[in-house]
Amino acid sequence: MAKQLITLIVNGDSYEVAAAPHQTLLEVMRDILNMTGTKRGCTAGSCGVCTVNGEQGEAILSCLALAVEWDGRPVTTIEGVEEGDKLHPVQQAFLEYGAVQCGFCTPGLVMSAKALLDVNTDPTEADINEAMAGAICRCTGHIKVKKAIREAAKALREREVNDGAS
């Protein structure tokens, strides 16, 4: 059916694209904007590899979001997480603490973890499990992923203290 001209705001950049109503945010990002960092998985909301962060930084499943619904609303993807030329503390911790293996689910895991830590830098074990249960990981058994999230939280808390002091 008729395509609509929409403006997707991805990682702070505005892109005007013509999208059919039935195209998902995932499809438009990957196939029109060529942003392949966000992965295509089950496309039915249960594996989490397509996770991006919405307006409030919340973790959303781009396979179940219509692109037209995101017209004019900012989205952050894995390509927009780095801080300048440095990795974000979540990415850094994933790298350092062995939370990355095959790497296919990693973008979804990072975006799910970032959504949690953006609003809670002192998560309990249950908070971490709850934030991550929507995301699959076959390789790591989630163990090092959880460890990395705890470490990233620590780094972010330190940063808060330092920022507060300066």
């Binding site: 942003m35 960092g37 992965k39 894995i78 990415q91 062995g98 990355v100 990693t106």
Partner: peptide, 17 residues
């Protein structure tokens, strides 16, 4: 740390899809 880790955590790693 894995040598390909930085690419994998930042969405730069390319898979067949």
């Amino acid at each position: 740390a894995r040598l390909d880790g930085a690419d994998k955590v930042s969405g730069r790693s390319i898979f067949a899809d």
